[in-house]
Amino acid sequence: MQYHARFFGLIGMNLNVPPGEPITFELPDSASYGDLLDIIGARFGSLFPPNVWNAETRSFHPQVVAMGDGRSLASAGRETPLAKDGTATFFVPIAGG
């Protein structure tokens, strides 16, 4: 199945794609959030700014929020199934100003 991801601000700045542009990944049917993280890490892990991506645990820093399929994927965990043709967004939340 296909799944999409958008990387914003700090997370997306080095990926050589327009900021926030959806990137499509081919995943097995019934793929989980962990499968998405694995393919993101393989493709972009070395391009993220320091400490954003943990290659050992194949996960983002806890400050990186992942929202997709109407929920917090990071809170739900790696085993969370993904919706076919869905989109996850990754960003670091700060607010105010």
């Binding site: 601000g9 700090l10 700014p49 400490n51 820093h61 700060i94």
Partner: peptide, 20 residues
């Protein structure tokens, strides 16, 4: 050098606008 620290020092709060 957490992501939030980097975001503040790189983009400030503008680093959030598109994602939000």
């Amino acid at each position: 050098n957490s992501p939030a620290y980097q975001l503040f020092t790189t983009f400030g709060t503008s680093g959030l606008a598109a994602a939000s």
